[in-house]
Design a protein around this nucleic acid. Structure first.
Lengths: 153, 153
DNA sequence: TTGCTCCTCACGTCACGTGAGGTGGC
DNA sequence: TTGCTCCTCACGTCACGTGAGGTGGC
């Protein structure tokens, strides 16, 4: 999704700053084909990133953040043929990714609740409230079971 | 948070099934001191897990799920002295972890919105809606900026 | 005895990170 | 010339995963 009116170029350091990924990772992703080869400066041989490159990198970073392997990311990106004709395929991939994120978000919520229950448990212990302590102990155990099930798929 | 009335024992395979972590990871965590040494069966030498062990493992799994390093997890667990006297310290650690989870959840939401904008972008491209395409392009770029900032701290 | 699970130890692997040693533009 | 950034290539590292080779209880 690059701007159709203006295109700037950026050094690897600038690209790293703009995307939040370290320069070493940008080189690594390019070397294994997760991102397409970026342009090089004449005579210097330095990488020159444009807006489309940055956009691609941000998208890869989003995929990586959900624990996708680099092999899968490469297939994913190769599939996205670049161009309006592939819109249908892109939407399909994006929808899958959306679902992955939804599952992850659900697990995050569970973990947050688990930690909250643990906080309340220790507060009950501190207050010497034996009944509440036992109640929260049971609750924590039940949540643990949920956490285990959520990790499977 | 082990049950005070009954304690069962479990093999490493059962412990793996109950916590969702592979047996190899349970051995690894024990070997580097992230979880305390578990009991061994007389003469067999096989690991025997009890409810307190399982609880500890689930807690470690929760910490690991937020990207905490094993070194930090070890310090964290060592600090939790086990016992009601450490309730205050436990609550402090748990509160910190809660905040880590909240930040992570915020990033998840951002990524979900980013993917959603991308989906709508390609739908606009597919529909040939140039104005909406450009609008969503700008929106995606703005979100990318947010994503970058969220990854920093 | 035959499976089955468990054990340790060592090496493999995945996704980078980190120098070493060298080049290019203000 | 002096910094500064960039380059490649190779090796290091972190968190496990995966055998190899062997033991123990029904």
């Amino acid at each position: 999704v690059s701007s159709s009116t203006t295109t700037h170029h950026y050094s690897i350091k600038q690209a790293a700053a703009l995307t939040g990924l370290p320069a070493s990772t940008l080189r690594y992703y390019e070397s294994i084909g997760v991102i397409s080869p970026v342009g090089r400066g004449d005579s210097s041989g330095h990488r020159v990133y444009n807006d489309a490159d940055l956009d691609q990198i941000l998208w890869v970073a989003c995929l990586a953040s959900t624990g996708m392997s680099v092999a899968d990311m490469r297939d994913y990106m190769a599939n996205g043929e670049r161009g309006a004709d592939a819109a249908g395929a892109q939407i399909e991939l994006l929808t899958t990714q959306k679902q992955r994120l939804a599952v992850e978000a659900e697990q995050m919520k569970l973990r947050q609740r688990y930690v909250q229950v643990k906080i309340e448990y220790w507060q009950a212990v501190e207050a010497g409230d034996a009944a509440r302590t036992e109640l929260l102990e049971r609750e924590a155990r039940a949540m643990a079971d949920e956490l285990k099930r959520a990790r499977k798929p």
